[in-house]
Nucleic acid binder design. Sequence first.
DNA 1: CATAGTCAGTTCAATCATTCAACTGTCAGG
DNA 2: CCTGACAGTTGAATGATTGAACTGACTATG
Lengths: 166, 166
Amino acid sequence: MQRTSFKNMRRSLAQALELIGDWWTPLILRDVFLGLHRFDEVVENLGISRNLLARRLAMLATHKIIARKVYSRRPVRYEYRLTAAGEELVPILVALTAWGDRWSAPPGGAAIEFVHTACGHRFAPSIVCSQCGEEIDAATTVGAARPGAKSGPGVTVIARKLAQAT
Amino acid sequence: MQRTSFKNMRRSLAQALELIGDWWTPLILRDVFLGLHRFDEVVENLGISRNLLARRLAMLATHKIIARKVYSRRPVRYEYRLTAAGEELVPILVALTAWGDRWSAPPGGAAIEFVHTACGHRFAPSIVCSQCGEEIDAATTVGAARPGAKSGPGVTVIARKLAQAT
DNA sequence: CATAGTCAGTTCAATCATTCAACTGTCAGG
DNA sequence: CCTGACAGTTGAATGATTGAACTGACTATG
């Protein structure tokens, strides 16, 4: 990767995007979550080229977002499952899917619905504040530079902006 | 774009990823949300190349995720703001940021925190079921092919899988 | 035993996207 | 007149992605 590395920028969004910030990775994770655990199943379902899938799976495995397990010796065959980190990504993918539905639904609507088995209902995901439980949105949310954070290349511009606003 | 088009696959996640499924777009949206409304501010903050930013902004504008507004004639100058669709993406970006923090926090922790001004607290985003209000996770969530949906190229494999499970 | 098929990849050429740096054009202020 | 801000555009070099063919270890069928 020749892309600008964000390793020293101490920005969590960029960190997340280094792992799942491309076209295929979220789709792969969704497929694994939905029950497609084998290489060829994912290839067939997504139409991704095999070399790219191999690379993505290797990358996701080294970052422990998915786990690679032997399900057969003779011949050696692997299957893929979500780890804890991968599973915590699922609600986000669900939310993204809902957003895609809402703002660019294809004719006929979504192909997949999500069911919350805990309560038995089909549901829409909503993202709430852990403190008060209310939905968060752009109007009631403010980003702020963390007090302790050293200002890297990127933090400066935002910090300056926020200083002006004060 | 020579990428496999998902236009006919009636999948909402793929739809969403066509719009924000790349490296820079989420970062651009975050910057616009955080108060960086001008071209050069974003360039400086992200280190993105100018031609790419121009293309991304044009694309986001045509899909009405951001709006391009004239803030000065003579010379003509534009600024960028989130539309309703863009603002509904913000909670998802916040959730992604939190995930990045949790699973691959850079040394020193996050550079940015989010504050919910409605209740005044710093918060962690949590994604809950719209029906019962409980947090959703991979264990209690099931994806299902929508009854009415025509099976496109991709739906088949998952549908087959789910049929086996029944 | 031979043949076909499954599975999880690897290899490679062609094509596409991204980076980096330099450039354009309009205007304001000194 | 000169400098600088601003919002881009242009183009060569580099990198990533696609698509198709191939490998290698096995299993199931006739």
